[in-house]
Design a protein around this nucleic acid. Structure first.
Lengths: 101, 101
DNA sequence: TGTTCATATGAATTATAGTTCATATGAGTA
DNA sequence: TACTCATATGAACTATAATTCATATGAACA
């Protein structure tokens, strides 16, 4: 597999807001306004974040009336987050702190 | 698990050089000079990249004489890259192109 | 068809992360 | 202990990505 795909994919998930959206959608699908209210984040920020996530098919959309319902593509993301959980537990004493650079 | 760990972990892998190093170390462990020559990248760039990867325990180091041998922590990374391979194949027609934003 | 609610988009600004280069550290060896 | 090879580090600079805000689109409905 080519490195560029990895780079694009990881970059997409390397953002606090997008991660928040992902973990929120893990529970259940939501529309933009719901996400905006739940996360206390301005609507256009949510929309931009969702646009990125859609690019890599990390989330799916469906239209329902004037709402757009976003759902998580769990096939990839759920096992991936599990890998990180396990990694952090095993190698980073619970959670990864980064190294300030 | 807390979102900050996900963020730090993904950010670490969201960089072309660090990904190159990771995929190179998947084959076999290498020292800094070897990586620098193989990837045709200046030594300090490699060192900085390795420092980041070490923070999240994505790579390990051992000293051997004056060299430092870096190896990949395969437990997490190998299955993670496989997940992306499969994702790209299944959902992105082979490889993820991003969306130019 | 004009108004409202829901969401998306573009572009300028701002924040974050990466590169570069000069230099420091540190192991081995003459 | 002075020198060399291997690697690390800090800080200024540069590049990349995120935020903001004004505005566009588009569905529903009066």
């Amino acid at each position: 597999m080519n490195n560029s795909t990895y780079h694009i994919f990881f970059t997409n998930l390397s953002n606090p807001l997008r991660i928040k959206i992902v973990t929120s959608l893990k529970q259940k699908e939501k529309n933009v306004t719901e996400l905006s209210k739940e996360l206390k984040v301005e609507q256009s920020k949510i929309s931009h974040a969702l646009a990125s996530l859609r690019c890599c098919n990390i989330v799916d959309v469906k239209q329902e009336g004037k709402q757009r319902i976003y759902s998580l593509n769990k096939k990839t993301i759920v096992p991936m987050l599990k890998l990180i959980d396990k990694h952090a537990k095993t190698f980073c004493a619970g959670d990864c702190k980064g190294c300030g650079r």
